[in-house]
Structures are given as structure tokens and as C-alpha cells.
Design a protein around this nucleic acid. Sequence first.
DNA 1: TATGAATGAGGCTTCATTCAT
DNA 2: GATGAATGAAGCCTCATTCAT
Lengths: 219, 219, 219, 219
Amino acid sequence: MTGPNWEPRRLTAVKAELPEGVTPPGTRGRILHAALLLFAERGFHGTSIRDLARVTEINSATLYAHYAAKEDILAELIALGHVELYNGMLTALSTAGPSARDRLVALVRAQVHMHADYPLLAVVANNEMHALSPQKAAPALSLREQARQLLYGVLRDGVAAGEFAIGDQVLAGIALGSIGIRVANWFGPDQPYTRDQVADTFAEYALRIVCALPIKESS
Amino acid sequence: MTGPNWEPRRLTAVKAELPEGVTPPGTRGRILHAALLLFAERGFHGTSIRDLARVTEINSATLYAHYAAKEDILAELIALGHVELYNGMLTALSTAGPSARDRLVALVRAQVHMHADYPLLAVVANNEMHALSPQKAAPALSLREQARQLLYGVLRDGVAAGEFAIGDQVLAGIALGSIGIRVANWFGPDQPYTRDQVADTFAEYALRIVCALPIKESS
Amino acid sequence: MTGPNWEPRRLTAVKAELPEGVTPPGTRGRILHAALLLFAERGFHGTSIRDLARVTEINSATLYAHYAAKEDILAELIALGHVELYNGMLTALSTAGPSARDRLVALVRAQVHMHADYPLLAVVANNEMHALSPQKAAPALSLREQARQLLYGVLRDGVAAGEFAIGDQVLAGIALGSIGIRVANWFGPDQPYTRDQVADTFAEYALRIVCALPIKESS
Amino acid sequence: MTGPNWEPRRLTAVKAELPEGVTPPGTRGRILHAALLLFAERGFHGTSIRDLARVTEINSATLYAHYAAKEDILAELIALGHVELYNGMLTALSTAGPSARDRLVALVRAQVHMHADYPLLAVVANNEMHALSPQKAAPALSLREQARQLLYGVLRDGVAAGEFAIGDQVLAGIALGSIGIRVANWFGPDQPYTRDQVADTFAEYALRIVCALPIKESS
DNA sequence: TATGAATGAGGCTTCATTCAT
DNA sequence: GATGAATGAAGCCTCATTCAT
């Protein structure tokens, strides 16, 4: 895996690869950053410890002064990604209006924002989970489930309150999640949209999917 | 990569892994089948030539009597997947009514069917492209682009004919594609839906996204 | 060993690679011919059974209908080369004058001719002997020793007859042999000499080395 | 290539295999030493990386901490051999008398000495060049050409000065070189000659070949 | 004769990891 | 912290050879 990779999974040119405040200081942070780039581009098994060391500009043995194993770097990234998404959703809900409609919009926008702001992190978190042992994957899987419950809670409330008209809440939730999760695979600075334009548009689609009546000032 | 994989990417229990009529006869077909299972579960770089040989129940050297390189097995799978999707979309269009609405429904249903019927193939085709050299990836990328054009052609026609009301056709197309592509990641025999129920529901969502007026008896 | 070899040991463009009448008929002969080219260029261990098959334009398994093992092809070539040299020397002696001087000239010329006419064969016979098992090498080694004795016999006679003035017959024999054996490494159609010009010149050198008085009509 | 080799190319029992001062320290030097022995005996393609590791008494992976590829070990040996020969010739010339005769003797003696002192190195440098890529072979080929020019310069001068009487300088140079280069193939501690006896004798032959008048007390 | 498929052994090289310095 | 050297295992692939057809 020394050579260049062929078809980039993700545009490497994204401004901020990791959320603010979560990057470890010093060498450990640079390792994590290199792993983010490489795991997103080539996958965990397509990236060697020496690839990581080369990008980080350290000796490969030095990696082990910061991480016990290659797997632990991936685990940290995947945890980071899931935390970021879940926290973003929580924050969005906390400032959203009380209606199911407002909360749904907040959740969709939060998901879009996370995937548009940290696409590499999202790609790694979504595609490389299978390379983690069950123990190392557990925290992320738990957050993933909690995030899912946030969405389904809103759907349930919206249906109960008569705000939404959907036959199958499970399929609706899947469709909504699918739209958001794929943002990481296509959005980038080369696109003629801002993150908010995408978020607004996809929130609108979400409302249509759940048949929320476009009362007045929908985005 | 001898041990079991941790977090399954895909439920292995799917009935028909490869489309009818495309599996090569004999050992070559068995190799392709093993590769489909393993690449879907562990990824290309997470699957060794010996893993493939073990599952195929042949000597690893025998692989090279049928494929020139490990990469070629992946290339064949990815080509197969893209052909299947594109042909499915073409067939669907050929039997659909002339309205943009009917054609959109046909395309969405075709995409759902392909991803529901051959989830392993879809996962490999979507997630492992980066492991192919540009040359080997080219045919599939070409088909992918052609399939995209089918969808955008329908969207364009629908907007022009006043059947659809969407502000941004590109974002609409992405959203529609996202819903369909993710089917491969969650649908399976363990789900309480038939493929047609999913196809119908997602076609309905598609119509809502493009604001097609629910004229009469839409699904 | 599929790729091209780098620095050709020998110009491949030599007219007749194998002595007349010794090439086996049919496929066996074509295999032998291919082995001659490839063993000379890349060495025995640098040439694979499939390289041989490719050049011969047969399936590699077909080789075993003609030779029991790769080593046997080499053994045949090496035997051929040694027979050719030894026979050439015998024939030369049989038509040479009775003097040691004449016989020395005949031997040197014969050695030059063989190495100039069949350089590939000579290179293989000289450089690849180490790849043969002792049993398979024995016939050639025996001929080599007999050829050596022909030369040393002439040297001995010349010294005894007062025709030659050399301190150490062994070193003189080695020097004479060295000049001849290296012909295979440099002579070719690209050289501005005929085989006879080289033979004449080197025969002259030989006479000088053994201090044969240039009586009258030396070349 | 695990078993013993059949017909030894070279007697392994030579005292000093590599010139003083050029062996790298530590493991790298031991690898180089092992490669010298094995490449001389079995050839580059007849020696496996595991053979090298076994003789060096290291793990085969450790080789790659010291050399990037098997080919690089050969390249270093071949470079070393050509440097040694060329330097020996330069040194010999620098201490030789000004006459062409003295300089020719110096060159021949230097060539004999190098091939007698480091026969393994000479065998590798002469016989295994074909296994190097053009790039890796270039430095040695350049030195080889420079060494050739040293000899032809002396021949030219000797002819111009009337010291030598040779019809064709090219053939004379080839003959002289042939005698020296073959020393590596037969000289060894089992021979009843010292290196200087061989050098003196072959220098004498050289003078005869170029028809240098044996003025006074030539060796 | 000829071949496609098969195989056990081994080719060169890289893997993730450890350890003495 | 950092590193060069070391290692056992494994990476992909080719080896010479066999065999049923």
C-alpha cells in the first residue's frame, strides 16, 4: 500500500477534517489526522502502519508510544465521529421549537451539517466499523442506536400529534437517514452549494416524506 | 484476516447472491461467489487470497488459473453490479408509461429491487471501487454515469412538463439516489418487508420529494 | 520472470543458434531453441517453464511430453555444446599438419569458430553448468576434460619438440583457453570481423604466447 | 534452492572475499557477505531471499531493514567489484613507469590481482549483471567502460611509440582482457601458484601478444 | 501430442508489533 | 518520546510439475 490510491473515495480537500477541540495535542493528534485521511481514502485494511507514519512524518515505531495498536486509532476516530453526530443532534433538538416538525428539521439539518463538515470522519465511521472488534465498536454502536432513537422519537411524536402522515415509520426513518448519511460521499468544496443550502433542501425533503403540511414559512 | 469478522457489514444470509445467468461456470464461478461474500463482509483489502481459496475450497494457486490478479476478481464483481443496476433501470424504463411520473417510479423501483435482490453485490460495487486501478474501474464508472443520466433525464422532463416541482434537480437526484443505494445496507430476509413493499414506499417518497401531484391512485 | 530482461548477455541476433543436424525435429527442437535463447539471456534459474512455453508457442504442460524436467533441457543443451566443441577440435586436429605448431593453430581456430558460430550455446554451456546435478553434468564435464587434454597434449609435444618455449604449460593452456572461451561473450554480427579474422588473429596470439618462432608463413 | 548446489562455480574457500574497508558494518555487511558467497555459487536467480537470511542468520524480513530489494544487494556487490578493479588499475598506473610497456604490465598485473584476490566478487560482477535493471547497472557499466579505456589508451600509446606491434588493437585488448577476467574462474588457494606468479606470467604473455620487444630483463 | 486445471512449495516483499538504545 | 533493527506471520503471486481429458 505504498503507491497512490486510484479513485479517491473522498475529496481530500476539505477544510476542517476533525471537529474543533477534539484533536489530541501534539504527535497523537497528527497521527489521528493522518489516519483520518488515509482510512477515508483507502480503508483501514488498505492503510499500513507505515503509511500512517509516513504521512505523520514519524517513525512507525513511534506510533506505539501514542496508540497501543492500529485498531485503537480507528476506534478513536469512529468514536469521535459518532459523538460528533450525536452531540450535534442533541444540541439541535435543544434549540428547536417544540413541534415535531421543528424537531425533525433540526435533526435533519444537524445530520447534514455533520456529514458536510466532517465528511472524512463520517466516511470512516460509516464504512470501517467492520474492522473493529466488538468491544471497540460497542461505544459507537451504542451512540448510533441512541441517535436513531432520537429520530424515531420525533417521528412517533409527529404521527401521534397528527403532524406527520406516514404509513411506516421505520421505512421513513431509514429514508431520512439515508439522505443524510450519503452527504459525506458527495458534498465538498467543489459543490455549488453551501452546507446550509443542502441542509435546508434536505430538511424540506424530509418534511415532504413525512407529509408534514407546509403550513406557512417552511424553509 | 483469518478469524471471523467482527461487525458484519451485511447479513450473509441472502438468497441469491449473484444475478441469474451471469455467474461463470465451474471453478471461476465459485471463486466469484466466494469473493462476493468476503469482499462484502471484510472489504477487498481485508480479504486475502488464501481466504478466497479456503472458501472456494481450492488451492490458492488455482485462483490464478482463472483470474490474473486478485484485483480482477473485484473488477468483475463491480462490473457485474453496475451492469445489473443499469440494465434493470433500462428495462424498467422500457415498460413504464410515458409520463415522467411513471418513469421516475420505474427507476426508483428498479434501483430498490437491484439493491434488495443483490445487496452483497451492491455493497461491493459501492464501497470497494477505490481498490481498483483507474483502468479497471473505468467500465463501471461509465455505467454509473449513464445510470445517473437516466435519472436526471426523467427529472428534467418532469420539471419541463410541469409534473415535478423541485428547485434544484441535482440535489433532488442525489436524495433519490441516496435512499435507493442504502437499501443494500439494511434490507434482508430478516426485515418485515417484501422487496416490493420497500420499492412501493420509496417510490412514493420519491414522488413526494419531487412534489409530483398525487393525481389519482398513486401506489 | 515475465518481463523483459534488462541487459542482454548476448546479442540475440546470431544466425544459426544450434549446430546443423543436432536440432531435434518438431516441437522438441523448438523447445530446445527457445531454451537456448532464454537460458543464454536470463540464465537457467531466471527462465521459467512458462517463459519457455511462451516462446515456443505451446502450453507449458506440453513441455513435459518432450522433456521429463526443465533440467533435462539444459542438460541437452550443455551436452550439445560440449560435443560440438570437442568434435570441432578433433576434426581440426585430423586435418592439421603434424607439427605442434600446426596442431595448436588448428585447436585455437576450432575453439574460436565454435564460440563465434554458436555463442548462445557456448554461453549456456559455460555459465549454467552449476544448475545441473552431478549425474546430468558428468558427460559434459568428461568432454571438457578430454578437450583440455587435447590442448595440453599439443603443448606438451611442442615443448618436447622444442617448438614452444613456455615456462608453465598449465598457465599457458589456461591463457589460451581464456582467449577462446570469451569469444562467445563479445563476438557477433555487429563486430567488424569475420570469424576467420578472429580465428587467425587469436591463433597468432597463441603462437606468441607459446613463443613459437614465427618461421615463415604465419597467418 | 535449499539443497546444496551441484557443480560449484567457484571454490568457496577463498581467504578474503571482499576488499578491505568496503564491507558495511554490522548486519548489512553480513548480508552482503552472504550474498557474495551465494550469488557466486548459485547465481542471483538461484539464490532466494531465505537462503540469504539463513546464511546471514537473520530473519528474512530483516533483510529489508538494510536493503530495499534483493536486486539492491546485487547492485552493491557489482558496484563494489567494478570500483575495486578500476581503482586497482588506476593505482597501478600511478606507480608504473612512463613507458607503454611498463603501463601495460601494470594494468595486466592489477587485473590479475583483483581477480585472484576477490574471485567471488569478480564472478558476480561479470556473470550476474544481466539480473540488474539498466538503472542499477549503469554505474558499474560506466566503470567498466572507463577501465577498458585505460587499457586501450596504453595500447594506443604503445603502438604510436613503436613499443608495440599489433595489427588490430581492439582484438589485442580483448585477448588481454580475456586472460585476466578468467582468473576469477580458476585461481584459488588450491592452485600451485601465488597471485604474483600468475600476474608475472600473464604480464609476460601480454607483452608477447603486443609484440613488445623483450628489451632487457623483463619479468 | 496437446492442454486447461490443479497443486504444494516457494518466490519476493510487507505486515503489525516489539525492544534496546 | 523517538528510533533503527529485528521478527513471525502473512501478503500476492509464480514456480515446476501432474493429471484427466
